[in-house]
């Protein structure tokens, strides 16, 4: 059982929780993730990247977006509540070394798992450039933390509501064209963003690492549900990844596989929203939302 010691809503859809998980807090390294399951009975197992950890307090921090029924239910838990199952740390840690000039691209919620990697890259003595991008201002997270860390920070939004009006690939391309060129790019975000980041760097031959967030069940290499094609070979994201060479990943196949349960999930998600509305209607003195 893992107690939630703090919870904060970062934007309409994004939540940050800090939970007790002493073994994981001690063992985790940048780039690793956990599998979270609200309860053992009927809840789904969802992979979430570890955004931060405090080994002395025995806690880990997770940041997640409410994209479906399971993440919605997770967001309903409050400080003091318990999550029954957390397994981790899973996956191979990020390969961190002194590359020279490193660009970290965090798209939307991807800024959260990017933070410990950016930290690691900085500590290893790299010149660190961070690009944060999101659909709109509301969805930009981790800006202050990244600003404190990075040598350069570039913020972009699709709608121009904050920072520069651009996709993350625009400043990325400019950096690739400038001199000195980046020695390594790390991109974490929606699959489509990672795909285009990889396409952007490909002509320049700049090493590009992406972190894949596929469908997972066990997270230990037992089910193969997380498999992706990398360089023509089948790889299991949970044990071989989550990070791969972005120039070798078959993103199209990965995106199609991610949509396997889309219809079922959409239905469940809608029902979940309906339920929440009903609940709110019933308990008008509830949580304070008008």
């Amino acid at each position: 059982m893992h107690r939630i010691v703090s919870k904060k809503q970062l934007s309409e859809e994004v939540f940050r929780i800090t939970v007790e998980a002493p073994f994981i807090a001690e063992a985790r390294k940048p780039g690793q993730f956990v599998i979270v399951q609200r309860n053992s009975d009927y809840a789904e197992r969802i992979p979430l990247t570890i955004a931060d950890a405090d080994p002395s307090r025995g806690t880990i921090t997770l940041i997640f977006q409410t994209v479906g029924k399971s993440t919605h239910k997770l967001a309903e838990l409050e400080e003091g509540d318990y999550i029954q199952n957390i397994l981790g740390p899973l996956g191979r840690p990020t390969h961190i070394e002194k590359f020279g000039r490193v660009v970290c691209v965090g798209g939307g919620i991807g800024a959260a798992p990017m933070y410990p990697i950016a930290q690691g890259m900085k500590q290893a003595g790299n010149y660190l450039i961070v690009i944060l991008g999101a659909r709109t201002k509301e969805l930009i997270i981790m800006e202050e933390e990244m600003r404190a860390l990075a040598d350069e920070l570039i913020v972009v939004t699709d709608d121009g509501s904050y920072g520069r009006k651009a996709l993350v690939t625009e400043p990325l391309k400019e950096l690739c064209q400038a001199s000195p060129r980046p020695d390594c790019v790390v991109a974490i975000g929606p699959p489509i963003m990672m795909k285009f980041c990889a396409e952007t760097t490909r002509p320049f031959g700049i090493k590009t690492i992406v972190s894949l967030n596929t469908i997972m069940i066990d997270g230990t290499g037992m089910c193969g549900g997380c498999r992706v094609t990398v360089g023509g070979e089948t790889k299991f994201v949970c044990v071989d990844g989550p990070e791969f060479d972005g120039h070798l990943v078959d993103f199209n196949n990965m995106m199609l596989r991610l949509s396997a349960y889309k219809e079922i999930e959409q239905k469940a998600h809608e029902e979940c929203h309906l339920e929440m509305q009903l609940k709110e209607m019933k308990s008008t003195k509830g949580k304070g939302n008008p």
């Binding site: 069940i217 037992m222 089910c223 199609l256 396997a260």
Partner: peptide, 16 residues
Amino acid sequence: GENLVGVFSANEYLTR
């Protein structure tokens, strides 16, 4: 075609 949508290992199918 083994990585198409709708192809599962028995482990995954049975675990689900």
